[in-house]
Design a protein around this nucleic acid. Structure first.
Length: 871
RNA sequence: GCGGCUGUGGCGAAAUUGGCAUACGCGGUGGGCUUAAAAUCCACUGGGGUUUUCCCCGUUGUCGGUUCGAGUCCGACCAGCCGCACCA
């Protein structure tokens, strides 16, 4: 009799699984498939129990599905490019590839020690040319279709990373990697992928994900894409080019009162509208219906027209200083939140194309250059921000919408903006229309007259993928003095990342200082040319990696279409909520591009997404930088992988954060020991039983004593509920509780030798180990073997529970009086209402509560409850 | 401000359709085994009573509603966490 020795058992079974190639799968259209995937890790630091939780959840799903007869694809790989490798390499004076591959080796060792059922033949590493050449290939396809383009633009720049960041990588104005580093803006030429070309689809297709993705993630994506439908409207500038107007001395005082409102012109553009772009200001609005209430136009401080407007204006001298201050104001999120609205009058006026009113043109710090047109019309009565601004600067606040429901707004004074829909008033010919009608007709008018058009704008921006660092995929483009920008031909891929590069971590891209990389012959003319030296954002790597798993060693194409068609879509994707926007949005974009390239036939890559909670210690997520990690390897050394797996499944439901507790983990360890001792105690008797085992598919065993009956009933009841917990809901913690409970029940019936035949013992103990198999596969396999099975447990299907054996023959019925429990009744199951009610009324503990009262009504729930309602 | 999630014992948590709240585990207390300890096995662990295989009371953040019956459904509020945030 040996004690439970997890280290020996785990090593033994991991070897058996590898030797028997249990987890290796091939596409096979004759079998139902199941693709379960955990987000690929970035190989850095040490693997801790936070990582392990993620893979454990996926592994349970993979193993259950395998037992259920599915052909399961469950791969693993490495998100191997990225800045930390480069920074570590600089610090340690080594090469990023060496650092990365060391980490990969360690990560792999730890994952193997936990017995995760990965098909390791499909392992990918994104920093290998056999992988990243396909990043380049995709890039070229996008370039051909205008989905990749280069443009000079104001970009986010992290001074610590020394590189550009995507909008998605800026968190509250700080770098996503450096919480303490403010992102700067710089004007740089860089490459973009046109995610905006798919904005509408990315938004619409979220509907396909409902039910399969967490509502929260769908909402975050919807907000991020940020669709607004409205109209762009051009306002002509009044008197522009002539600074001798009567505007002096009337700054900021709303529209010019002296002029009578223009009558709606019968046809053609209102007076003053010219088609030239230089003297018009275009605004974007979702509420064109409120345009008669506009009392100013407000431009973003960085709006290109501002300087022109100020030149020679009456306000030039004072405004220029204010403008300069505004333009370099902070990007810090916390300060932006609380910042006051500030602005100044430009000295210029614009003409409202609907009524000809001249309204002042202002500059305001709250108007964003990045959204819409960088200019807004200020309608203080019907927009909160405009209201605040107008109140502060004394702009007029005309009411042009009244609430539909009787109560009407009045201007003496208006206390807050009315931003809802209602009825138009003071809006010329549109007065009396509902907001919806006014929106429609006024948009039509603007289009007919040519001074505006309906437009949809998105908050989503194109994805900036250029990075001025070394450790990433080279962008396959060459610049030739004669031919200009030339795409590298497919046949020349991959553009290899050179190995001998001086890494300084400063300023320029390291590739730019590597002549043997930069200097190249032009693919078109053969003359001297220079390579692009930017590398790709690593989110490119992870945008399509899960396709590569289907066909990881293909050197003719990113993947075989047939293989992908078999395995996709991903049935279950598992990862942290941190990737709710970045990775998942880019992946969805990539999928749609691939679909339009004819490579795949679906629009969404991931059918179901599960976001697991984090593992915390001391209330904060485990991370190396916080110094609160529980290393996965220490865990395996101390308790074994099975205990680690069991505990992370048991301590909290998978979607919830889990606070690590060294004390609680002892409970999981004790339980596995308890199961081990139980099986070991009866293994010899069980092995002596001849004939096929029940769990292996033979007919369920018939009990021939009360004790056997009870034991089998408890076992099959547990099996029924555990099956449900695995299949219909992911309640691993309650599944484990049920198995613990069953174990306790069996202990309470010891000695089993008295009154329980060995074949019944076998049935019960086999089912126990099969229920544990997906969660703690090593000990389950060992116990399975101890029970006399020589083939590995991996061939055993998930057992079916026997409804007949699970059926309760005697039930306890709760008797309530006026909803309060007053007694209990032990009766045979299935007893009818007319029999139970008199019994309930006769129950001594109940009669005292009926005492002299009349039962006016009774409720009967079969086998469960009686409620006597008394007056 | 907007959107979402979560509030259950000393702690982590359970409770499929509204039907015995607190399963399972941790921690705690007591006991068996042992020369002793560890390990292990057993019992108890919301409060109170007592005739202890029994009774009473309380209880799921707060207040109200629906219902024979609410942790669960509805409404309002409070607290905490997360996401978005001048998006025109």
């Amino acid at each position: 009799m040996a004690d439970y020795n997890p280290q020996a058992i785990e090593a033994k079974w991991q070897k058996r699984w590898a030797d028997a190639r249990v987890f290796e799968t091939e596409a096979d259209p004759s079998k139902p498939k199941y693709y379960v995937l955990e987000m690929l890790p970035y190989p850095s630091g040490t693997m801790h129990m936070g990582h392990m939780r993620n893979y454990t959840i996926g592994d349970v799903v993979a193993r259950v599905k395998r037992m259920r007869g599915f052909n399961v694809l469950h791969p693993m790989g490495w998100d191997a490019f990225g800045l930390p490798a480069e920074n570590a390499a600089i610090k340690n004076n080594t090469h990023p590839r060496v650092w990365t591959n060391n980490n990969i080796a360690e990560f792999q060792r730890v994952l193997r020690r936990f017995g995760f059922s990965f098909d390791w033949r499909r392992e990918i590493s994104t920093c290998e040319p056999e992988y990243y050449r396909w990043n380049q290939w995709f890039f070229l396809r996008m370039l051909e279709r205008g989905l990749a383009y280069k443009k000079k633009s104001r970009v986010n720049w992290c001074p610590k990373c020394c590189t550009v960041l995507a909008n998605e990588q800026v968190v509250n104005g700080y770098c996503w990697r450096h919480e303490d580093t403010l992102v700067e803006t710089r004007e740089i030429e860089q490459w973009f992928l046109k995610t905006t070309a798919y904005a509408e689809q990315l938004l619409d297709d979220l509907k396909l994900l409902e039910g399969g993705w967490p509502e929260r993630v769908i909402t975050m994506q919807r907000n991020w894409i940020g669709k607004s439908t409205g109209a762009k409207v051009r306002f002509a500038l009044a008197d522009f080019g002539n600074n001798q107007t009567g505007s002096v001395g009337r700054e900021g005082s709303g529209s010019r009162e002296g002029k009578p409102p223009h009558a709606e012109p019968a046809c053609g553009a209102p007076a003053g509208i010219k088609s030239g772009a230089a003297d018009t200001i275009e605004v974007f609005t979702t509420r064109i219906d409120t345009i008669y209430g506009a009392s100013a136009l407000i431009l973003a401080p960085r709006h290109p027209l501002v300087a022109k407007l100020l030149a020679g204006s009456s306000e030039e001298s004072t405004a220029s200083a204010k403008l300069a201050e505004m333009q370099q104001s902070t990007v810090k999120a916390e300060e932006l939140e609380t910042a006051d609205k500030v602005g100044f009058f430009t000295g210029r006026y614009a003409v409202n194309p609907f009524n000809g009113a001249e309204i002042p043109v202002w500059v305001g710090n709250f108007v964003l250059m990045e959204y819409g047109t960088g200019a807004v019309m200020c309608v203080p009565a019907h927009d909160e921000r405009d209201f605040e601004f107008a109140t502060k600067y004394g702009l007029s606040i005309p009411i042009v919408v009244q609430p539909g429901d009787g109560e009407s707004l009045s201007n003496d004074p208006l206390k807050e903006a009315f931003t809802e829909y209602g009825k138009s008033v003071n809006s010329g010919p549109y007065s009396g229309l509902t907001t919806e009608e006014a929106l429609d007709r006024m948009s039509a008018k603007a289009e007919a007259q040519g001074f505006g058009k309906r437009e949809t704008v998105f908050r989503l921006k194109d994805w900036g993928i250029s990075r001025q660092r070394y450790w990433g995929t080279p962008i396959p483009v060459v610049y030739c003095p004669k031919d200009g920008m030339v795409a590298v031909p497919d046949a020349d891929l991959p553009v290899l990342l050179p190995e001998n590069v001086k890494l300084t971590g400063e300023g320029e891209s390291p590739l730019a200082t590597t002549p043997e990389f930069v200097n190249v012959k032009c693919p078109k003319c053969g003359g001297d040319a220079r390579r692009e030296t930017d590398t790709m954002d690593t989110f490119v790597d992870s945008s399509w990696y899960f396709y590569r798993y289907c066909d990881p060693h293909n050197d003719k194409a990113p993947f075989d279409k047939g293989k992908v068609a078999y395995w996709f879509t991903i049935d279950q994707y598992i990862g942290g909520i941190t990737h709710a926007i970045l990775h998942l949005l880019y992946s969805r974009f990539w999928c749609k591009v691939m679909r339009d390239l004819g490579l795949v036939n679906h629009s969404e890559p991931v059918a179901r997404l599960f976001t697991q909670g984090m593992v915390q210690k001391g209330g904060v997520a485990m991370s190396k930088s916080k110094g609160n990690v529980v290393g996965a390897e220490e865990m395996a050394d101390k308790y074994g992988a099975d205990t680690g797996r069991l505990y992370t499944l048991f301590a909290a439901p998978p979607e919830k954060d889990l606070e690590w507790s060294e004390e609680s983990i002892e409970g999981s360890w004790r339980f596995l020991n308890r199961v081990y001792r139980l099986v070991e105690r009866h293994a010899e008797a069980v092995r002596a039983v001849k004939g096929a085992s029940g769990a292996a598919g033979a007919k369920a065993i018939a009990p021939n004593s009360a004790k056997e009956k009870q034991l089998l009933r408890k076992t099959h009841q547990a099996l029924r509920r555990v099956t449900q917990d695995f299949e219909t809901r992911w309640h691993f913690n309650s599944a484990i509780a049920l198995i613990m409970d069953l174990t306790n029940e069996i202990y309470a019936m010891e000695p089993l030798g008295e009154g329980v035949r060995p074949e019944v013992q076998r049935e019960v103990l086999e089912l126990l180990t099969l229920m544990l198999a997906p969660m703690t596969p090593h000990i389950a396999a060992e116990l399975w073997e101890m029970l006399g099975h020589e083939d590995g447990q991996w061939t055993a299907p998930w057992p079916a529970f026997d409804a007949e054996l699970a059926r309760e023959t005697e039930v306890e019925i709760v008797v309530q009086v006026n909803g309060r429990v007053r007694g209990k009744l032990k009766v045979p199951a299935g007893m009818p209402e007319e029999t139970v009610i008199p019994l309930a009324q006769a129950e001594p503990s109940v009669t005292q509560h009926l005492d002299g009262k009349r039962v006016v009504k009774h409720i009967f729930v079969a086998d469960k409850l009686v409620n006597l309602v008394v007056a």
